[in-house]
């Protein structure tokens, strides 16, 4: 756990994040257009539109790659948490960029008076039986629908309505969207453009996303196997000073559920590792202003009973804690959310 962890400051950081995000995307699209223009100077309006189609299409694809990389990156290095906490705006912007790509594609057909031929691209049913020659636009459309669904349900209203587990499961559809876009490009433009840049983009992006997920999964596995159950079912965490002050140790219960054991000076408490907001990894957070603070979006909970301070109403499951021969131990059976369970030890360290 690094020093310098900072809670999410709601408004200013969010605006800064959005400004950097939009500026970065605009810069990418602008540079792409300039290079495209120099490389193949457009001869007519459709050529011009084509450059923009590609600029927006590749931008959306690369953004999707980044979104899928943020999760594992944040687990490997805490500096990436900054990206994570506002991933939602990233997602919505990706949808808007992809939508512009599609709108430009319509303009491309329209500029040549070919708009009426477009539906046939989707309804030539025989093509759906092919691999090469598969209606790649339909793959793009399916991906766009998923991105739309994600963007539309990204608001906290839906999170509250659907509950975090369902909402998270829904957001796993983003991986399906990624697969669809990869094939949209592989079976589309890659089939009739010979530039090695397209396979390079696809393979590079795919390799990066896979490698990051593999490394993160491997690290988690190592951590899950590390915990040691002991006498009468309680879990040993270690002496109080093994828990970083204002930080936590994460222990894994025999069933696989994770428990965050926090220490705030001489007070030690155990909470579920799952944040009530979006199931973020609470144990990777810190104690800020006397409250356990989630690293993802800054939701806060009291260490003593897992309740969010007023006016908030979230409650987390707590766990019983005891000191046994100088070793902190946790009862892995969860208490009802909001049950006071922390203990205060006489002293910490030698």
């Amino acid at each position: 756990m690094s020093v310098g962890f900072k809670a999410v400051q709601w408004n200013r950081d969010k605006i800064v994040y959005d400004v950097i995000l939009v500026a970065g995307v605009a810069l990418y699209i602008g540079v792409f257009a300039v290079i495209g223009w120099r490389w193949h100077p457009p001869k007519n309006l459709p050529d011009v539109i084509d450059i923009w189609i590609r600029a927006f299409g590749t931008a959306a694809f690369l953004m999707l790659t980044v979104i899928l990389s943020i999760g594992p990156l944040a687990r490997l290095d805490r500096r990436f948490l900054k990206l994570l906490y506002n991933r939602r705006h990233f997602g919505v912007l990706t949808f808007l960029v992809a939508l512009t790509h599609v709108w430009l594609m319509l303009a491309w057909f329209d500029a040549q008076g070919l708009l009426h031929t477009l539906p046939a691209d989707f309804t030539t049913w025989g093509d759906y039986g092919k691999f090469i020659g598969f209606p790649f636009k339909a793959l793009g459309l399916a991906a766009l629908l998923i991105l739309f669904l994600m963007a539309a349900t990204s608001h906290d209203f839906w999170l509250g309505f659907l509950k975090p587990p369902v909402w998270k499961a829904l957001h796993m559809a983003l991986y399906a969207a990624y697969a669809l876009v990869v094939m949209h490009v592989a079976l589309g433009i890659m089939q009739y453009e010979r530039t090695p840049l397209i396979p390079l983009m696809l393979i590079g992006s795919f390799a990066a996303v896979s490698a990051l997920h593999l490394i993160a999964a491997w690290r988690e596995r190592a951590r899950d196997q590390a915990s040691t159950p002991i006498s009468d079912g309680w879990l040993a965490v270690g002496p109080p000073d093994a828990i970083p002050d204002k930080g936590a140790c994460i222990v894994t219960a025999p069933g696989g559920e994770r428990i965050a054991v926090f220490r705030d000076g001489r007070e030690i408490g155990a909470l579920t590792n799952l944040c009530a907001h979006q199931n973020g990894p609470l144990g990777e957070g810190r104690i800020i202003d006397g409250c356990v603070t989630c690293p993802w979006h800054g939701y806060q909970y009291r260490l003593s009973d897992g309740c969010a301070p007023a006016p908030f109403t979230e409650k987390l499951a707590t766990y019983r804690v005891r000191l046994n021969n100088g070793v902190v131990e946790i009862d892995p059976r969860p208490l009802p959310p909001g049950t006071p369970a922390s203990i205060t030890v006489a002293h910490v360290g030698a």
Partner: peptide, 30 residues
């Protein structure tokens, strides 16, 4: 992530990754 969610994720993503890898390869080869 909850435990169940993690389990599904652990099984699903290698399958999806394999599928995408195969897709890109076949599209290049063919």
């Amino acid at each position: 992530m909850t435990r169940k969610h993690r389990l599904v994720h652990r099984l699903a993503w290698p399958a999806l990754a394999l599928l995408i890898g195969l897709g890109i390869t076949m599209a290049l080869v063919l």
